[in-house]
């Protein structure tokens, strides 16, 4: 612990960041790694989160070197938990561990093979996942450094490692963090959510080899535990926003498909998971109009937009303008499909 007068113990900068990164990456003791990550995180908060997150490129692995670790929180709230699987180790008995490991790998493969991106940070960042987080934890999230998955409650939600697109969604929050940085509120937040849905769906389509016409365009299909007489199809539908679920307990999916039904309330960080239905639907329309495999053209347009054209406070009109411009590189038919898609959703 730092003993310098006036220096809070958990944010002491006496250890240079590069040394802390080394400890965070290489220390064999999980407690030391955790403390180093904690310190880097707090340094980041003080220096500006976005800049700090680029420090987490500490793995610095060469392109194509996949590094995954899976931890078990054993139903507690401490992260990352106990290391239970490292890269190259075989499947074990725990299905959540196996899924977190396998689907992180498929997400890595998609970004490398299709987008030529070397992991979340494009510098080979190790993909860390924690499973069995907390109690009755009906959620998955990206905490700026790693993925975290709950087991669900067994009544409404199944385990959150179950769906490849959910894992792709969470890791794409990491990609967004290291690129456009889209602020998680209002339209920039809805774009952040939408890019996670778009690439989550594309990762699933790529793994299945589906064309745009064959894809289900659902996010989290199978995550909701079925109940007779209700619609618990998925969390979201990019093809038909507002139809993913309808259930007396859960409510009805409120996602709009077009700007006409734009949500202007303050819930959900001003509608980040609600209004994402609009750019989601625009992507679906563009991809199906272009035809073939959605990652081959529409996906590339959206990826170039996310990684080179957008920034912290970009809005829907900025994403529409940027994708329209990038689409020109892919021929007249693609440009028209993208233009028509945004026009159809009111942008």
């Amino acid at each position: 612990m730092c003993q310098h007068a006036g220096c809070p113990p958990h944010v002491c900068f006496i250890i240079p960041p590069h040394m802390m990164e080394h400890v965070a990456t290489n220390a064999s003791d999980p407690t030391l790694r955790k403390r180093a990550l904690h310190n880097l995180y707090h340094q980041g908060q003080l220096r500006g989160m976005r800049a700090s997150m680029n420090q987490f490129a500490f793995a610095g692995l060469g392109t194509g070197t996949k590094q995954r670790t899976v931890y078990d929180a054993q139903h507690g709230g401490d992260l990352p938990g106990t290391l239970v699987r490292s890269e190259g180790q075989p499947d074990g008995q725990d299905v959540a561990v196996n899924e977190a490991y396998a689907y992180a790998g498929q997400t890595y493969d998609f970004y490398l093979e299709v987008m030529k991106r070397n992991s979340v940070d494009d510098k080979g960042m190790r993909l860390d996942s924690t499973v069995h987080y907390s109690t009755d934890y009906d959620n998955a999230f990206w905490n700026g450094q790693q993925m975290v998955y709950g087991d669900g409650d067994g009544e409404i939600f199944d385990r959150f490692t179950k769906c490849l697109d959910v894992i792709g969604h969470e890791l794409t929050h990491g990609v967004t963090q290291f690129t456009a940085g889209l602020t998680y509120s209002s339209q920039s937040g809805a774009l952040n959510e939408s890019f996670s849905d778009v690439f989550g769906s594309l990762i699933k389509q790529y793994a299945a080899g589906d064309t745009a016409d064959q894809a289900d365009w659902l996010i989290g299909e199978g995550l909701l535990i079925p109940k007779a007489g209700t619609n618990r199809t998925a969390l979201r539908s990019m093809k038909a926003p507002g139809t993913a679920y309808d259930d007396p307990t859960l409510g009805k999916d409120p996602q709009p498909a077009t700007m006409k039904d734009y949500y202007s309330g303050s819930d959900d960080n001003y509608g980040v998971h609600i209004n994402s239905g609009i750019p989601n639907h625009a992507f679906y329309l563009a991809a199906t109009a272009i035809g073939g495999k959605a990652w081959e053209t529409a996906g590339l347009i959206w990826y170039e937009t996310l990684t080179t054209r957008l920034q912290l406070w970009s809005e829907f009109k900025d994403a529409a303008a940027a994708t329209r411009e990038v689409a020109q590189k892919h021929g007249a038919a693609a440009a028209k499909a993208v233009d028509d898609a945004w026009t159809a959703v009111g942008l």
């Binding site: 009906d138 999230f141 859960l250 980040v272 998971h273």
Partner: peptide, 13 residues
């Protein structure tokens, strides 16, 4: 009561 997360705005009991 919990709400939000990836499943927002789905209602939870």
């Amino acid at each position: 009561q919990r709400q939000g997360g990836i499943a927002f705005p789905l209602r939870r009991p």
